[in-house]
């Protein structure tokens, strides 16, 4: 995995730095005439949890939507600048569905699709052509276990996923995202609709997942970023104010007064 990257760096074929999973260059997003994000440049390293904090309407969600090219399906959404995943511009993909398959997304509000729990998790593998039940069974069980949901649903895999409790649905959503075996996992304020106990469990899962995937975690909870993120970016009103090692950020080593005020809870 990492070896791959090293090879690329040595051949120098690609201008991207291979230890960087995600590179964003001068990204601006607007909806019609309304600007949502202006000129954001940042990198996300492989196998790190990258936190993004900021108050409402700071462009965090728009940022995530640009990463897996949801702008294509969002009327009026206009994206400028570059987004490189593993060194390849997301807009250079001829088959954007293949790109999306490599990027898992978890929404603020849990979305259990109105099909059985099993079908929810088996959907992505099925979409990529896996039909054998034995293979699907293994994937479903593995993903549900990694999302800490298996024990709760193993006896009702064939009941509707959309009728689970909110916390369960959120873990189902995570299991679904994991079933894609994503290189990059995007989480958008996942704890909004989830109780604190479940939140802590999901946070533990994310720490485990860091070993095998890269995570971008958008959160409105500053402390959550502190607990989980290796590095954290602060977004404010469509601007990326600063990116820093999370420890530094919370130890007061910030360059911008606004970041300090937000982190200390003076606004937000």
């Amino acid at each position: 995995m990492v070896e791959h990257g090293a090879e690329n760096a040595s051949t120098g074929e690609n201008r991207a730095n291979p230890t960087r999973m995600l590179e964003v260059r001068n990204l601006s997003i607007s909806y019609g005439s309304k600007s949502a994000l202006r000129d954001v440049t940042l990198d996300v390293r492989e196998n790190e949890i990258f936190g993004i904090i900021g108050p409402a309407n700071s462009g965090k969600t728009s940022f995530l939507r640009a990463l897996n090219r949801m702008d294509v399906f969002t009327p009026g959404m206009n994206v400028e600048g570059e987004v490189l995943v593993s060194g390849k511009d997301v807009r250079s993909w001829r088959n954007l569905y293949a790109l999306r398959r490599r990027i898992g997304v978890v929404f603020p509000l849990p979305v259990g699709l109105p099909m059985s729990v099993y079908d929810n998790v088996a959907l992505a593998p099925r979409l990529s052509g896996i039909k054998k039940k034995a293979v699907l069974d293994v994937i479903v069980e593995k993903c549900l276990q990694r999302a800490a949901l298996w024990d709760e649903v193993k006896d009702r895999l064939h009941s509707l996923g959309s009728l689970l409790s909110g916390g369960q649905q959120q873990r189902l959503t995570i299991a679904r995202a994991l079933s894609q075996d994503p290189d990059l996992l995007l989480l958008d304020e996942f704890s909004i609709a989830v109780d604190p106990v479940t939140t802590m469990r999901i946070e533990d899962i994310l720490k485990e997942l860091r070993k095998e995937t890269t995570i971008v975690l958008v959160t409105n909870l500053v402390q959550q970023a502190r607990r989980l993120a290796d590095r954290t970016a602060f977004f404010l009103m469509g601007e990326c104010v600063e990116v820093a090692e999370t420890e530094d950020l919370f130890a007061g080593g910030v360059q911008d007064q606004r970041t300090r005020e937000y982190v200390e809870g003076r606004f937000g």
Partner: peptide
């Protein structure tokens, strides 16, 4: 939200 969840998993519009 159901459509978006599906698209985000890499499903085509038709899928």
């Amino acid at each position: 939200a159901f459509r978006e969840a599906c698209w985000n998993m890499g499903a085509t519009r038709w899928q």
